[in-house]
Amino acid sequence: MGTSESTHGRLFHFFRWNHLFPKRPMAVKGKTRIFQQVIIILLFSVATALMTNALRSNSLPLVGDWSQGTFSLKAELDIPTVPLEDAVVKFLSDEALFLDARSRADYQSGHIKGALNLPVREGNFGRRLQEFSLKVDHEKELIIYCDGIACTLSPELASILRGLGYRDVKILINGWTEWTMTGMPFEVEGNT
């Protein structure tokens, strides 16, 4: 390397990567091939996603209504949701009855204080529902919860109770998680 060569020239030469791998020039053809492959991957992914979404049980509508701050169940099932703050107020003033739509085992390992368990997916649900409808007035305000934002147990239970003639049925979305996070009272293993 001669002293006549300027520093600028040498630096510039270094950043031309070609001399590092002289045998592997990046072909223009390769670039267009990559873009073609990108389009193939994108199309394949979107097609797979749309197909599985159409087939799966917990599918989403392609365009959802997020104006309520969460994806509204109301849009699909016409069942109102109750914000956590309102649910807390109703709990403290004892205005509403809380219903736990989760399984018996989940209920026993912890539930909102005073909540009744109506496990929609379990075998004895019919009998429990009958007892419940004899015991609880149809004008009573009911707040149904399960766990998880995408939990479908509460809407299921809500539509069943509506069918039985309960007028004031609401859903507390992601109820159990939200409830425990606020530090509101809960019970472990109670009698229903």
Partner: peptide, 22 residues
């Protein structure tokens, strides 16, 4: 915007999975 959220929620996980596999 709200109209795109479901589309992203449906397609993005598949795009991630397929890119990972490839």
């Amino acid at each position: 915007p709200g109209g795109f959220i479901n589309l992203v929620a449906i397609t993005l996980p598949w795009l991630e999975l397929i890119c990972g596999i490839l």
